[in-house]
Design a binder for these strands. Structure first.
Lengths: 221, 221
DNA sequence: CTCGCGGGGTGACTTCAGGTCAGCTAAGCT
DNA sequence: AGCTTAGCTGACCTGAAGTCACCCCGCGAG
């Protein structure tokens, strides 16, 4: 698929990498993966196309780098303000659910990149991205769940991985539905002009999650 | 993107459409979207490449058709055997969760196509597929949820759409994790040689779903 | 039986974007 | 100033999607 020449490593090269990444991030977010042409990035930056391949090996390599940065820039569960965390696990979870729409409005780009990584490339790339997510756990979901268990708010009768996966899958899908109409099964974009009903829907998901993983649902066994 | 010439409609043409779809389905399932070349399909069938474009307009058009068929071939929730349904909503849900691995082993192809449609193409195509899923509801999740509510097993204090979306998202993600290691955050493929532990994990998800949407969790108010 | 017609098939050709590489430029060292 | 080498360049290559002018063949009319 790609060149295996070692990419430039000097300090001068680092600055250029940043430039390329910034430009690529913007273009991927707006045009999608297929819609972004390496040639365009090069000409926007007034550099040669070959240069980009020198640095990132391939279009896929460039996207993977863009993705890692974007995802790392998204907030982790436990990075909520102290006073929110003090109110507990589900308050923290609600805090992020409610903030998602604001955060998306403020800076749409990393959410969009994360979404394009999830759905808009191909399985080869997806495998790579998934490896990254699993090994880095950038949102710190596992830690978050363990924290909730330690506080006695989250059930402890099921494997942490199972609970964390459920949270990741559900909140990920929710986020995607909020970011892009294409992925919304009619839950939010159909209520574009009724923000209070949108918020009610988010609260419904919070209720579902709380019922699912809250310690109250625990089975005696 | 594609040709807009009207595709052949005669009865003779129909047979050829079927041939192309069958071959394309197999190749998409095995090689993925990007990895499948129209040229190869044509030469396998001993027909001209142009012929395929005549029928389906573009590679994307061909895939969308393949996807619709594959998804329509998957079982809907309420198509479970009578004796299973008689045991109720969550028994039916468990029935499908447990059967997924068998069904996948028996005929991997439609699951794989559904997965490739979900993650392995691009957002343009995904929009089209999502429209299909939303408008056709091929698994009948909405109906299934209403049936569960009518039996008094599923909570009625939240919108049906919200509950149905949760089921679709979660069981979809589960299915994908079972079908393809690339999408598994380590829940199943790591336990490849311990089928009983895999089954336990599935049961854990069933428990989570039951806690989430069961009528027991309903809030008074 | 032949002729004309049109649905459908054909494959060489065009386009276009990712990827390559032999040579070049310039920054830094001696 | 001369040497070395990291990093840049852009013409070129490749490979796959998509196009289209032409052909073929089945069929009904004469």
């Amino acid at each position: 698929m790609a060149t295996d020449r070692k990419s430039p490593r000097g300090p001068r090269a680092e600055a250029k990498r940043e430039l390329i990444l910034a430009c690529a991030t913007r273009r991927f977010a707006h045009q999608g993966y297929q819609g972004t042409r390496i040639e365009d990035i090069a000409s926007e930056l007034q550099i040669a196309k070959g240069s980009i391949f020198q640095h990132f090996g391939s279009k896929a390599g460039l996207f993977i780098e863009v993705y890692k940065r974007a995802v790392a820039a998204l907030p982790s569960w436990l990075s909520a303000p102290e006073e929110v965390r003090a109110q507990g696990f589900f308050a923290t979870l609600r805090h992020w659910l409610e903030r998602t729409e604001h955060l998306v409005a403020e800076d749409w780009v990393p959410y969009r990149i994360s979404l394009i990584g999830a759905y808009g490339t191909d399985l080869e790339i997806k495998r790579e991205l998934n490896r990254f997510i699993v090994s880095e756990d950038p949102y710190g979901t596992l830690e978050f769940v363990e924290w909730g268990q330690a506080r006695g708010e989250v059930r402890t009768d099921l494997d942490v991985e199972v609970i964390a996966s459920m949270i990741d899958w559900l909140t990920g899908a929710l986020q995607d539905a909020l970011v892009t109409e294409e992925l919304d099964p009619g839950l939010f974009h159909r209520l574009r002009h009724q923000p209070d009903r949108q918020r009610a829907r988010l609260e419904h998901f919070a209720i579902l999650l709380e019922s699912a993983i809250g310690a109250r649902g625990e089975r005696v066994g």
